[in-house]
Nucleic acid binder design. Structure first.
Lengths: 165, 165
DNA sequence: CAGGATCCAATACGATACTG
DNA sequence: CAGTATCGTATTGGATCCTG
């Protein structure tokens, strides 16, 4: 244990981001400051899909190691991910979603549904279609198209949306 | 009408973004390429709140005009917003959500709920609390804390979330 | 008012090399 | 494997000036 300042990196990052927009009052803005960049939500999506190791994230997302390292650090610093010891014997760490991170489920599902509904042409194979054809729902929470496991559209149902006035 | 290429700006932008991540198959990634930057979703949120004019967006978000102009252009180019003539007599245009843009409702609500649930300390006044105290639901869709109108937490209910296997 | 054009600073990102 | 350090580049954003 060296200095109090040595452990401050992620906190500084958070603060630096926080002053960029006026997120004092708006929860949406505050949320976007944490996961509103190009990679963070994709990392979270992968985590929902069961990806846990540094190398898996990197290969799957195709981003540079330095960027991945810094994003993971931020996510851990913000309490979205946490580091745990590997389940097998290996001495390495793994990243897993905290409760807070799991709370992003609806956000990602919303993005997925929007993407499926508006961002695919008819010619393209939609993940929903493919999954229905195969007819075998498997695996844990899979929020993207990956071989063998996927989120059934019925898994999440938006019940009621009322417009006040 | 000059050249075919003259009207290509927004399309080029879209394509440039599209190749950054492998969004061929994943709807989440594809969605993030369109609204996954720091400003776009905040603009959409404002649009849900009834903001329609360039100047309103700029004053509310506090971003530079050039950035706002380019973001609005992208959003229009991607079919999230559309330009309409001002409702009053003024000769100026206004921006309003398309159906596709309105489809982002659940995403923003999800972000809002996550922000409210995890990103506010107990000491801070949460928008939810404040709204409940006031007890008067008013205005159109308000997804952020703004004087006089707000989204009641009961407006959106997530009904069922099943984890397959 | 609603932008466009230009210039400049900050940042994000990728590639590479290095470490335990 | 899981990073850190360094570098060069690309993108982003802000500020300023200009237009109709």
């Amino acid at each position: 244990m060296l200095n109090w300042f040595d452990n401050q990196t992620s906190r500084e990052v958070t603060l630096k981001r926080a002053k960029q927009t006026s997120a004092e009052t708006c929860p949406v803005a505050r949320a976007l400051e944490i996961i509103g960049d190009r990679w963070s939500l994709l990392i979270v999506r992968d985590a929902f899909d069961g990806i846990r190791r540094f190398n898996e994230f990197q290969r799957d997302l195709g981003l540079s190691k330095s960027v991945l390292a810094s994003r993971l650090q931020e996510l851990v610093g913000n309490g979205v991910l946490q580091i745990v010891q590997a389940e097998d014997g290996s001495a390495y760490q793994e990243y897993e979603l905290t409760g807070k991170g799991q709370g992003l489920f609806h956000v990602i599902v919303g993005l997925r549904q929007w993407g499926e509904g508006f961002l695919f042409s008819r010619n393209e194979a939609r993940s929903v279609m493919l999954e229905r054809k195969s007819g075998k729902p498997v695996g844990p929470l899979a929020l993207r198209t990956r071989a063998g496991r996927s989120l059934t559209p019925d898994d999440v149902v938006i019940k009621k949306v009322t417009k006040t006035a």
